[in-house]
Computed example of a mutant assay.
Amino acid sequence: MKFLKTRQMAYSMINGLLLLLTVWGCGSSGTKTESKLASESANATSAAAKTAAPSTKQTVLFYGNSLTAGYGVEPTQAFPALIGKKIDSVGLNYSVVNAGLSGETTAGGKSRIGWVMRKPVAVFVLELGGNDGLRGLPLAATRQNLQAIIDTVRLKSPQATIVLAGMQIPPNMGTSYTREFRGLFKELADKNKLVLIPFLLEGVGGIPKLNQPDGIHPTPAGHKIVANTVWNVLQPLLK
């Protein structure tokens, strides 16, 4: 009997010790889990706050066709992205948005400008019309469409500086059409008091080694030259 009683007491002590260890273990694990969750929650809150924080940078928006979109090259090699790097390198408080669309005509640009201009911009670079000229579209319509785009930008973002990129085309459509096409960009710039880039592809257009096999779209080296042309006009406007 004494042996059995002693054995029962031993079992009781062991069970009590196991129970104590179990409770202590659960309490320790719970504390660690709560601490980990609290840490993760704090990190997530911090990250969300950073994401939600509004950007103080002003926007430079490039609105154009495949030249702006960077057809045939990496997005980082297209001239708008190169302009973005130049802006960052000199510490200017602007961010670049590339709203280029390959194949875009002035009519297409007119149809989507309201959607693109949902937020205000500081500088609007308009590069459209090249596809109109290459297709021989009526120049009266090209003028009207470009004017409509300019009017919408002025309405949506009255303080924006508008930069118009001039374009030229080969004489395939005839001397008169080619000359009138070249002149319409300066006419619009003068009429609307825009900043004009006389010829976007200056030093690139018609030079085989700076263009892709189609003879129209610049290579990465060509885009660097285009970026410099744009930057010479754009930099003085950025404050």
Rank of each mutant, 00 (worst) to 15 (best):
M1L: 05
F3R: 06
T6L: 10
T6C: 09
R7C: 06
Q8V: 14
M9N: 13
Y11H: 10
L17R: 12
L17M: 14
L21T: 14
G25L: 15
C26T: 09
T31M: 12
T31L: 14
K32G: 08
S39I: 13
S39F: 14
N43H: 04
A48D: 08
A48M: 02
T51P: 09
T59S: 11
T59M: 13
S66F: 07
S66E: 08
T68V: 08
G70Q: 01
G72H: 07
A78I: 08
F79I: 04
P80G: 07
P80E: 10
I83F: 11
K85E: 14
K85W: 12
K85T: 14
I87S: 12
S89W: 15
S89V: 14
S89D: 15
V90E: 14
G100L: 10
G100C: 12
S102I: 11
K110Q: 12
S111D: 00
G114N: 04
W115E: 02
W115N: 06
R118D: 13
A122D: 11
L126A: 08
L137W: 03
L139P: 04
L139F: 02
Q147C: 00
A148Y: 00
I149S: 04
T152R: 10
R154V: 05
P158K: 11
Q159I: 11
A160Q: 05
A160E: 05
L164M: 00
M167D: 01
Q168I: 06
P171H: 08
N172K: 06
N172F: 04
N172G: 02
M173K: 05
S176C: 02
E180R: 07
E180W: 09
A189Q: 00
A189M: 00
N192T: 02
L194F: 02
L194M: 00
P198F: 04
P198R: 07
V204N: 11
P208I: 02
D214M: 08
I216Y: 06
I216S: 01
H217Y: 06
H217C: 02
H217R: 05
P218W: 07
T219F: 07
P220D: 06
A221D: 05
K224L: 03
I225P: 01
V226N: 03
L234T: 00
P236H: 12
L238H: 09
